[in-house]
Nucleic acid binder design. Structure first.
Lengths: 177, 177
DNA sequence: TGTTTTACTTACCTACATGTATGTAGCTTT
DNA sequence: AAAGCTACATACATGTAGGTAAGTAAAACA
């Protein structure tokens, strides 16, 4: 069995992606993990600490995933396609991007979490931008912004319609020419 | 002074756009409007009723706004530009699209609200699609989906960076050629 | 072996969210 | 003038969120 701290983070990430960070409680976490809610406080003193840990963890895992795409896949089109598929998979579990969810909840989170969220999206834009550079796009930065906006918006719409294809249809233009 | 029911809806819409529908209470509404929370219950028995009223109201006002764009503005490019500006204006008030926010909160709202949200976005896609038809786009439906995804995603990112230009940069491709 | 640390539990507290039941002042209708 | 309706207020109920203080069993360390 994985350690409790990791199980808390995994479950909190899941809850955030489905319900939003503000729509689950320490009691919800505790009940599902099988401990008391004070044990959740033991690992993350306040809920704001949990939020920060979540965003910082996903920023790291996301950066590693992107690095892995860059190693494993030959063309920038394939790499962007892998990123699209990663987000598309959220839909069948009724999830959206965790940081997209927190971006919606932006006005309710701490300054530290706001900064961590900004860094997450900047990292993402940088990596996407690099793919467009390799595709000889005349304006890779703006193209990356368009790609990321479409990605975040499409998961919202796709979950609403319970149709993962909406993600593909919203991003096809960027990978097919 | 406008009637209390309208003031409740206006304030609830504002709160939803900034904090999210689940992150304000009847007490918050009552305090700002200057009545007791039981008076909010008088107009909207349960919070789910308020959510439904909000989405149905904005669907109507949005449809009228689009109709007005179609009458006032000559080209589809100008009309889409007006829609973009409408969303861009949210950013300086630290707001996002109300239905985009509720789409993020999708898993926590009632089936009635889910349906109303779906109708809102379908109306929106239909109108946007009509503009692309007039622009002789070979695939106006997919183009509308791309536009809407980019619009919803860009307001999320723009608010996070406190930079309304992100909305423009994410949607320029659709109106400039 | 004694002490400290780790990973929790027990037991509580305060605030607030979401309501319900009942009352009431003023206006309207018959 | 009586009855009813509108638009609220008073008072209360119930649950839960988020958090704290203190205790404890087992493992690690010195």
């Amino acid at each position: 069995m994985t350690d409790t701290r990791t199980r808390i983070l995994d479950l909190a990430e899941d809850f955030t992606q489905t319900k939003g960070f503000n729509n689950f409680s320490y009691l919800d976490l505790a009940a599902e993990i099988g401990v008391k809610n004070s044990s959740i406080h033991y690992y993350f003193k306040a809920k704001a600490d949990l939020a920060l840990a979540l965003v910082e963890r996903i920023r790291e895992t996301h950066n590693e995933a992107c690095k892995s795409f860059s190693h494993r896949l030959a063309t920038p089109q394939e790499r962007l396609g892998a990123l699209i598929d990663h987000f598309k998979c959220y839909i069948r579990d009724k999830k959206i991007c965790m940081c997209g969810m927190m971006a919606a909840e932006f006005e309710t989170v701490s300054p530290e979490v706001r900064m961590a969220l900004a860094l997450y999206f900047r990292d993402m834009r940088t990596w996407i931008s690099q793919q467009f550079v390799q595709m000889n796009d005349p304006n890779p930065e703006d193209r990356a912004l368009q790609f990321l906006s479409a990605l975040e918006g499409s998961v919202l719409l796709a979950r609403l319609e319970a149709d993962p294809m909406i993600v593909d249809r919203s991003l096809d233009i960027f990978v097919n020419h």
